[in-house]
Design a protein around this nucleic acid. Structure first.
Length: 574
DNA sequence: CTAGGATCCGATAGGTTGAT
DNA sequence: ATCAACCTATCGGATCCTAG
């Protein structure tokens, strides 16, 4: 094209409005005034940080690399090499202390390496290579009940329609409050089944995990078959996005496809335009259309939240940007039909919580534009702002939840995530490598905040959730949060016990033990789900190792390091 | 060097206005 | 009502840009 003639020094930036309009963005060069288009249309002229360049661990690029290798006949050699190379989280350099995955992996590298581990090769990657270039669009409106030779639990004869109804109700009642992805008024068993057998099967699988253990294994197999089918046939619809998300919420330890599933779901969500922001919904929209639109929006928000949580847990870069839709999500819960749903309040609240967390993390790790340009990061200032925002967040969302007539669970749930976020962010202010003599007031303020928040996280799990009888239904994220809190507390005890309040040591031990006990009780309630009992043993193991290391006997430490509660079938202490 | 996101040209659809 | 002229929004796709 003619543009290639001279170097065209253009600003290389377009505001969100021009970007959406795909038009040249002129008139905002000074960074002060809005651009011509925004001035004309009277819209907010916002410039976002660009996201160009390859993303770390891009699955698509892996797939196309794989294709090339196959073409060149190097397939065998490369596969062999891959099998020999152990999976290593690649970015060892960046703010190593702060991401839960890194902390948890060091404390106990066998239990969590599967939960959080990013990179294991999935069978899909090697067996199914997406057909690059082949047309995408004609699969759009599929699947109906028995597609492509894949059964759902009903056609497979595992579950009767009546039982499916009951399971569905239980899922909506017990599991949905943790993920807030579904609208029971829209998502009936029939609706989901007619829309997408993959989602239907995935939900049945989750339901069986807790309420019909004898069928769990079979349903899980069907769900995996359908996931494979969804990959290979490139099904593209919102229910597939939801199904992939659901595949990760209550997964087993040995299943390490979280990143791949969520990555795929995020990509599809964007391709489907689930994040399309409509300021004014069409005037003649029926209630059903409204629910379907809200369903799309909710799915995107839930994915955004999940994506950011994973990013914080693992230190990987997030996939979904903070776009216009997300920026307007603080009132999303109010834009439903008549009365506000508590579930929607949770979704809107969490989206804001993630925004604050992301913004602060960027600032703390120096990725933000706001740091002073010399690479210096003012941790204390960033934490002051963050803590202020977090307490405002709580005031706002406690009130919104009251307006929506939330139940005790909803308040505990909001608090659980807020406290964890506070813990995570304030942990940036607790620097182990600074000698105690050089530590400042800010340091001990952050340290005490972490102590308080971590204890509260564990108490919500061990008291509130336990008393409500819902601990076992919590998704993986909740387990990771309690693990991180416990590990963090024990680390504080080891490195800074003299800065903690009196009796902190016994309080910490007791609280972790109570959490373990609560998980143990939860485990009895859902016998096929190994997650809760593994987690209980993991927590007890932490205390045990900590006591052994810091206490009298040190001759068993070597052995303890290799003791893995996830693999050993025995209780660790009494 | 490459993948994939950003930019924005240019074609076009659809709306508005004024002359007939 | 019909039509031309003009205006604006939309979006496919060529090209540019940047991180891995």
């Amino acid at each position: 094209m003619r543009r290639s003639k001279q170097p065209v020094v253009r600003n290389a930036r377009a505001c969100t409005v021009c970007r959406a309009a795909k038009m040249k963005c002129v008139g905002a060069e000074d960074g002060e005034r809005p651009c011509q288009r925004c001035r004309r249309t009277n819209s907010e002229c916002i410039f976002e940080k660009h996201r160009r360049g390859r993303k770390p661990g891009s699955k698509l690029s892996e797939a196309s690399k794989m294709l090339r290798r196959l073409e060149k006949g190097l397939n065998a050699a490369k596969l062999k090499q891959m099998n020999e190379t152990p999976t290593t989280p690649e970015d060892g350099d960046r703010s190593d202390e702060k991401f839960p995955a890194k902390l948890i992996c060091r404390e106990n590298n066998s239990f969590f390496k599967t939960i959080l581990n990013p990179e294991h090769k999935s069978p899909f990657q090697t067996t199914i290579v997406p057909q690059a270039g082949n047309d995408i669009n004609h699969q759009q409106s599929r699947p109906s009940s028995l597609v492509d030779g894949c059964d759902d639990p009903i056609t497979a004869g595992l579950i009767t329609e009546e039982k499916a109804q009951i399971l569905f109700d239980l899922i909506m009642l017990r599991l949905n409050p943790f993920i807030n992805l579904f609208d029971p008024a829209l998502h009936s068993a029939d609706y989901v089944r007619s829309k997408c057998p993959f989602l239907f099967t995935t939900l049945m699988m989750a339901g069986c995990k807790f309420f019909e253990p004898s069928l769990y294994k079979d349903c899980l197999r069907l769900a995996h078959d359908l996931a494979l089918c969804a990959f290979s046939k490139a099904w593209k619809r919102i229910e597939v996005v939801q199904a992939f998300a659901c595949m990760t919420y209550w997964r087993e330890q040995e299943d390490n496809r979280t990143w791949m599933y969520i990555g795929y779901a995020c990509r599809m969500a964007v391709e489907l335009g689930l994040n399309r922001y409509v300021e004014n919904p069409p005037p003649n929209e029926t209630d059903f259309q409204l629910r379907e639109r809200r369903n799309r929006e909710r799915t995107y928000l839930v994915l955004f939240i999940h994506d950011r949580s994973l990013s914080i847990q693992t230190g990987r870069h997030w996939m979904l940007p903070e776009d216009e839709f997300i920026r307007h999500s603080d009132t999303w819960h109010q834009r439903g039909s008549s009365s506000t749903r508590c579930h929607d309040v949770v979704v809107a609240a969490f989206a804001q919580l993630r925004r604050t967390a992301a913004e602060t993390t960027d600032r703390l790790t120096g990725r933000s534009l706001n740091s002073d340009g010399n690479g210096h990061v003012d941790i204390d200032a960033a934490l002051t702002i963050a803590n202020h925002k977090l307490s405002r967040w709580w005031t706002t969302w406690e009130r919104e939840m009251q307006k929506a007539h939330g139940e005790p669970f909803h308040f505990s749930f909001l608090s659980f995530f807020q406290l964890y976020t506070s813990l995570f962010l304030n942990s940036f202010g607790v620097l182990d490598n600074v000698p105690q003599a050089n530590r400042t007031n800010n340091h001990s303020r952050a340290l005490l905040a972490c102590y308080k928040h971590a204890m509260s996280v564990l108490r919500i799990a061990s008291k509130d959730f336990r008393e409500l009888g819902v601990l076992q239904y919590g998704q993986e994220t909740a387990t990771v949060m309690t693990a991180y809190s416990a590990i963090f507390l024990l680390r504080l005890l080891r490195s800074s016990s003299n800065e903690l309040p009196d009796g902190a040591a016994s309080d910490i031990y007791e609280t972790i033990a109570q959490t373990a006990e609560a998980y143990n009780t939860a485990a009895q309630l859902s016998p096929t789900s190994s997650t809760a009992s593994y987690h209980a043993r993991f927590l007890l193991h932490l205390i045990h190792v900590h006591r052994t290391r810091s206490g009298v006997s040190q001759d068993r430490t070597q052995q303890d390091v290799h003791l893995d509660p996830a693999l050993q079938g025995m209780p660790i202490i009494d």
